[in-house]
Structure formats: C-alpha cells, structure tokens
Simulated assay, not measured.
Amino acid sequence: MEIEEEEPTTSTSTPPKASMKKRRRQRKRKNQDDEEYQENKSVANQINQKFGGSKEKHKDETPMFEVRNGKATIKNSGNHRLTVSRTLDTHMNKMFQWEEEPEAIESSYNCALCHEQGLKRELFGPYYISLNPAKHWPNFLAKKPTTKKPSYKIELWFHGTCILWAPNVNLHGSQLTNLDHQMDIFWSQNCAICRKTGAAISVQNKKNMHVHYPCAKNKDEKKGDEEEEEEKRVLE
C-alpha cells in the first residue's frame, strides 16, 4: 500500500512581498502628510501671532480703569498715554490748519500794521477779514474795489511782533480773534513817528497818540545811541 506524501502548504502568516511594499508606501505617505501638516500648522501660528491675536490679548492691551482696594488705576498706562498723545496731535493739527480763500482780494506782501515789506523780516499769514470799503481802506495793500458791495474779503500779513503787541487781538489756533473790528480801528490811527496808518500801540500818558512797534523800537535804539555818544563826548 502506497502512501502519498502531502505537499507542504505555504503558511498564511507570512504576507506576500507586494503587500509588504504597499504597506510601507502607505506608512511613508502618512508620515509625509503628518510632517506637512505640522509645518503648515507652525506657519499658521506664526502668521496668527504676527497679524492676528486672540480677543483676550487685545482686551489685555486696551487701556482701562481698574479699581483695586477702592483705588482706581489705569491699566496699560503706556497705551493710554499713546492714545492721549495721538488725540492731542490730531486736535492740534485741526486747530492749525488754515484754508485759503480764493475769492479774497490779494494784498501786497507788506505788514498790514507797520507797512514794511516782508523782504526784511518774515511775515505771518495770510489772515482774512471782511472789510467795508466805505470805511478805512488800506490802499497800501490793495486798490479799493470799484464795484459796490457791502463788504469784501481781503488777505492780510503781519510781523509777529506787530500783531502780538496789538491790543485786543489774540491768537487762537491758526486764527486771530476780533481782527475785523480792530483793524478798522488801527487803520484810523496814524503813527506819531512815521505818520502812516496802522498804529496799534498807545503811548503812555499821551492821549490819542499811537505808534507802530518797529517805529517805537527804532526810536529807542536811536535815542540810546545818541545818549551813548553824548556820554563819550563828555568823558573826552
């Protein structure tokens, strides 16, 4: 009796080579995907830190009053000072902005008070007033209009010292207060030294006597020089 030998069967626990390669490729692809995900996540976090920020962080940086033990303090005082500083800068810029009025009569570059040209010293302006041509018109600044209107806008320039010494005129931002009324008074007053209009400074103890600031200053300087020369002659 012959006994047939059975052929050895292949163990099912050992996977084929093709299956092993496929699994290795899948693990490798998964690792690559994980690395790419982590890299993208890191870049996203950097962008968020630079340009974004959480609501809580923004809230912490906001200046605010904080009460502790019955005492109020400013939280984030550095940001508070920066906010106040920017607000003040914006307000001051608005105050010192001036708008040119193209319809106003253009005047010569002379001080509207002392008549001197701005070539010697810098003039400030332009400032604008409404002027009635029936009153005192400054012919040394511009020709009197021939058309009949109740008032005209005219531009004015001033030396800083001339307008600062002028009474009842104050600088508020970029505007001079009460200028319309006062200029009509100044142009009705002649300087006791040069005899020109626009004298704003009253002479002490002299009724109805007015002078320009440069005229008074030059006279004092000449007087001082004369006194100095007289002293030298006496000593010689």
Rank of each mutant, 00 (worst) to 15 (best):
Q26G: 10
S202T: 09
K222C: 07
D60Q: 14
E66H: 04
R86G: 10
R86K: 15
A200S: 14
W157V: 00
D180C: 05
G70M: 10
Q117R: 06
R233V: 12
E7R: 11
I105S: 08
M64L: 12
Q38G: 11
N31H: 11
E230Y: 13
Y109P: 02
E228F: 07
L82P: 09
P63D: 02
K223W: 13
E36N: 08
S174P: 00
V169P: 10
T146F: 10
C111Q: 00
G70A: 12
V84P: 06
K28W: 07
H210R: 14
N45T: 11
Q175H: 06
D220T: 15
I163K: 01
N48P: 02
Q46C: 14
K55S: 11
N110E: 06
E56S: 15
R25G: 02
S130Y: 05
F51P: 01
H80R: 05
H136W: 11
Y213F: 12
N110S: 10
K149R: 14
K207S: 14
K50D: 11
P102G: 09
S85P: 03
E4K: 07
R25V: 08
K75Y: 00
A112V: 08
I201P: 04
S19E: 07
G173N: 08
L119V: 12
K17G: 02
R81V: 11
H210Y: 14
E230S: 10
N69E: 14
D33H: 09
E226R: 00
G173M: 05
N190T: 10
S151D: 10
I3R: 06
C111L: 01
K41S: 15
E39L: 12
P167Q: 01
D33N: 13
F65I: 07
S108R: 02
C194M: 02
Y109N: 06
E39T: 15
E231I: 15
Q175V: 08
V67Q: 02
K57A: 15
S85R: 06
K143G: 14
T161V: 12
P8Y: 09
R121D: 03
M20S: 15
K143I: 09
A216Y: 01
R233P: 00
R233Q: 09
G70I: 05
E227G: 06
T177Y: 03
N205M: 06
Y213G: 03
E4F: 13
R86P: 04
F124C: 09
L131Q: 04
S13E: 14
P133C: 04
T62K: 11
L88K: 09
S188E: 09
Q26P: 05
V234W: 03
L156Q: 04
L179W: 04
H212N: 07
L123I: 04
C114Q: 04
K207L: 12
G173K: 00
R233W: 04
K149P: 08
K149V: 06
P138K: 00
E231A: 15
G118H: 08
V67W: 00
L156Y: 03
F158A: 01
N190A: 06
S202A: 10
F51W: 11
T73F: 15
K120T: 05
W137S: 02
S188P: 01
A142D: 07
N45F: 09
R29S: 14
N110T: 08
A200L: 01
V67F: 00
T146H: 14
T14R: 13
K196E: 07
I74G: 01
E116H: 03
K207G: 08
L131D: 06
W137Q: 00
S174H: 00
N69L: 07
N31R: 10
S130W: 04
S174N: 04
W98F: 13
G224F: 06
